[in-house]
Amino acid sequence: MLDDFMTRATLAGIGTALAAAPMGCFVVWRRMAYFGDATAHAAILGVALSLALSLPIFAGAVVIALLMATTVALLSGRGYAMDTLLGVLAHSALAFGLLAASFLTSVRIDIMAYLFGDILAVSRSDLAVIWGGAALVLALVAWRWSALLTATLNPDLARAAGIDPKHEELVLTLALAIVVAVAIKVVGVLLITALLIIPAATARPFARTPETMALIATGVAIASAWGGLRASYAFDTPTGPTIVCVVAILFCCSATVSGLRRLKVRTD
C-alpha cells in the first residue's frame, strides 16, 4: 500500500497536520507567530548544513531551529523590540541558508523542494521520520498539556502551582523545532507557519475550551492536507501551496460564519 506515491503523500500530510495543529494553538495563544517564522526560516540553513556534512536533514533542521530559538531568547530584552529582532534573525537565517545551499555544487539539490515542500516525493523513510516526529510532538504536548496551558495563561499562576514557566517554554521550543523539521518535506520552510497558525485561527470561533480548539484545529489541518493533495493532483498545481490555499479558504469560511453569528447576536 505504501508503494503508491499518493498514499505516502496523504499519510505524510496527515502526520504533519497532527503535529502542527495542537502546536499551532500554542503559537497563536502565546503570540509566537513570528517566532515560528524565525525557527522555520532557520531550518533552511540546517538543511544546507546537513547536506554539506551528509547528515540526516531532520537532525540538522531540528538542531539549527533550536539554536535559533536559543539565540532569540539570549538576545531578547537587550534593546531591540522583539519583532525587530525576529525579523532580523528570520530573514538573515533564510538568506544565509540559501547562500550556503548555493555553495553545495557537489550535491545537486533542488532548493525549491525545501522552500515549498515536495510532498509527492516522500519516501518510506521520510514517512517514518514524519510520523516519528509527529508522535514525539503529540506525546510531549499531551504530557505537558496542563502545565503548558497554565504557563501560557500567567507565569506567576504557574509558579504558585509548582510549574516552572521557563521549563515549559523550553518544551514548546523543542516541540516547535520538531514540527518545523517534520513539515519541511510537506509544505517547505516558507509555508510552515501557515500550517501552524491558520488551522488554530480557523478553529477559534467554534471552540469553548482550549482542548476543543486543539481538536477542531487538528481536524481542519487534516482536511486541508487531504483536500490540498487531491486538488493539486486534479489541477496539477504545486502541492504545498495548494494545501495552504485550502486551509486559507477554510479560514475565510470560519471567519464569515463567526462574523454572521456576531451580527445575528447584535440584531436579536
Binding site: 501560557t152 495563561l153 504558585a160 502551582a161 469553548r208 475550551t209
Partner: peptide
C-alpha cells in the same frame, strides 16, 4: 501549597476558556 490570585489575568482573546 500556594494559591495565587493575580492582580489581573490578561486572557488572550484567541484562547477560549470556560
Amino acid at each position: 501549597r500556594l494559591g495565587y490570585v493575580p492582580q489581573r489575568l490578561a486572557l488572550d482573546p484567541t484562547l477560549p476558556m470556560t
